[in-house]
Amino acid sequence: MKKILSLLLIVLFAFTVHKYHLSLTKIVFNVKSNSLQITMHCFIDDIESVINKTENVTCELATKREVKNIDSLLQKYVLSNFILKVNQKKQLLKYIGKEYEKDLIYFYLETDSVPKINFLEVQNKILLNTFDDQQNIIKINLNSQKKTFYLKNGNDKEMLKFDK
């Protein structure tokens, strides 16, 4: 048995699913711009199914059958599901763009200049509503401190304290 491409794979039995649901987000501090830069990737077909469902469209990402305003749809989805707070203040995120690489889609986001970071809260709800087993991995590289954690259903945010 094997993975099927249809949306129906979420329903009842997962027996034909040869797949896992995962996103990886890297957050780094850029010294030059004094900003946080975010690179997030996940599977194209996962994002495609959620966009088609929530926006009631039928598009095929990374093909000629994308809808015209796909970037604004993706931007809306990503920005409403990924939230960053610095010292308890929600950051305005710039959606820089997206890029396809094989079966993955990469999203690029960036904050404005940020104050000295004592607390960083990351919330990533991407695809959690769509797939029970979705895992959103977050990797942070800040002031030469590296941290990795996993967000999933029931635990979609994490607060980090930075001493230095």
């Binding site: 797949k19 896992y20 895992q135 996993y150």
Partner: peptide, 22 residues
């Protein structure tokens, strides 16, 4: 390299596996 809570050894009975396909 995923969350250890969501991993099972390959040598697990079929019904009790996380991430079946992988």
């Amino acid at each position: 390299r995923g969350d250890q809570d969501q991993l099972s050894p390959i040598m697990s009975q079929s019904n009790n596996i996380y991430n079946f396909g992988m």
